[in-house]
Design a protein around this nucleic acid. Sequence first.
DNA 1: TTTAGGATGAACT
DNA 2: GTTCATCCTAAAA
Length: 178
Amino acid sequence: MAQRLLGSLLVRRIDDQEVIVKIVETEAYHELDAASHTYHGKTARNGVMYGPPGYLYVYFTYGMHYCANIVCGPAGKGSAVLIRAVEPIKGREIIAMNRPENGQGINLSNGPAKLCQALRIDMQLNGHFLLDPPLILELTSPVAREQIIATPRVGISKAKDDLLRFYIRDNIYVSKLT
DNA sequence: TTTAGGATGAACT
DNA sequence: GTTCATCCTAAAA
């Protein structure tokens, strides 16, 4: 699913305006994965990951950042896909307003916490169902396999070698080229 | 161009 | 007390 979600769209309603972004980078986290929040079992924080797919899992980290995941596995499984970078498609001005100090170019949304700030995603949207407004996931046709690059994940200290990060080749909004 | 450190709070040992 | 699915700035190379 992490690969399948590449190229798909997130449609966000902010102040009665429509903002659309394309997912260009993802990471997969599963239950038997030492780097996953669910590795040590279910807690209050990661509960959404154990629910049915199609819901948003948001967590707060480093004392100041939010990151957003899409729950993908079946209910009870504790797996999700982290959205690491998106490309603005529509409503770039709204996104720039949400990132006042750093509102230029690729810096608008080329990182997991940056895109949350850009789309105003915080704990209020934790557990949100992604077929409902104000945040909707629109699956597009899959990106061709040759256009998908697989690499180790970013910023983790466990399960370092697993190739569970995926991004769209040549897209400038990818957080870190490798 | 690359690296180092600070911000800041929740979860975990 | 330590770690953490990060970001930003400033300093060093």
